[in-house]
Nucleic acid binder design. Sequence first.
DNA 1: ATATTTGCAAATAATTTGCAGTCGA
DNA 2: TCGACTGCAAATTATTTGCAAATAT
Lengths: 130, 130
Amino acid sequence: MLEGKNIKPSVARVKILEYLIRYAAHPTVEEIYNQLISEIPTLSKTTVYNSLDLFINKGLVRMINLGVKESRYDADVSNHGHFKCNHCEQVYDFWFEKEQEAKGLEGFQISDKNIYYRGMCPQCLTGKGF
Amino acid sequence: MLEGKNIKPSVARVKILEYLIRYAAHPTVEEIYNQLISEIPTLSKTTVYNSLDLFINKGLVRMINLGVKESRYDADVSNHGHFKCNHCEQVYDFWFEKEQEAKGLEGFQISDKNIYYRGMCPQCLTGKGF
DNA sequence: ATATTTGCAAATAATTTGCAGTCGA
DNA sequence: TCGACTGCAAATTATTTGCAAATAT
């Protein structure tokens, strides 16, 4: 996968991308680092940042920002939205039936769409008194 | 307006809200501060942050995050999207014809919707070789 | 051998916090 | 007077940067 995008598959890069794809939907840099430090004892956060930037530039990964805090990263670059629960902080994916035309952007060249909702997920809504 | 939301209309608060509504569509804290410091020489950024937080909690203002950098603030709390030009950095508003149902959020309670696009605006597209 | 990748530590920058001074009813 | 509001300075925190050491081809 990395080679297909002309990225040298170093140990760190392979593990980071693998983690993004297989184990975590939208981890933060912190989460990636904490998970992989046991597998790669010499790993640094700089390398996590470097690798993610590289992946983003090559279109393998997208960065998502839910609110003002740290960024999260998603190996699913298809067009979809994210929902973050205000209570449990979990991030869910969602989609729209069909692409919708934006009014007010006639003549604009759109390169990137970000959609995120906030609220309460069903688990936190039921049985918790909210 | 402030009194309608049970907010004491101090000089700083009135000026900040007025600036948001009348002069700037989506300013940053920095922009608000720089604009108002001449009118209110004692103004501090802390007060700008405090006032904006208050407005947000009362539903008068919404915070918007375009990418990873500083937050912007919008006194238009109606449901609309934001487009930020990658070249001139200007922020534009847009809307959808009609609200669309999200697939994958059945049973979720949605309290906040954020939509932002990035790309190139017509002005930057024409006559600049992009 | 040489270019790339990595990692530490310091720098940066937006936001938050603690707390003391000020203002207004 | 009393509580709310303000503002300075310090703290916090995610991210970036400079540069030297390690690594790979």
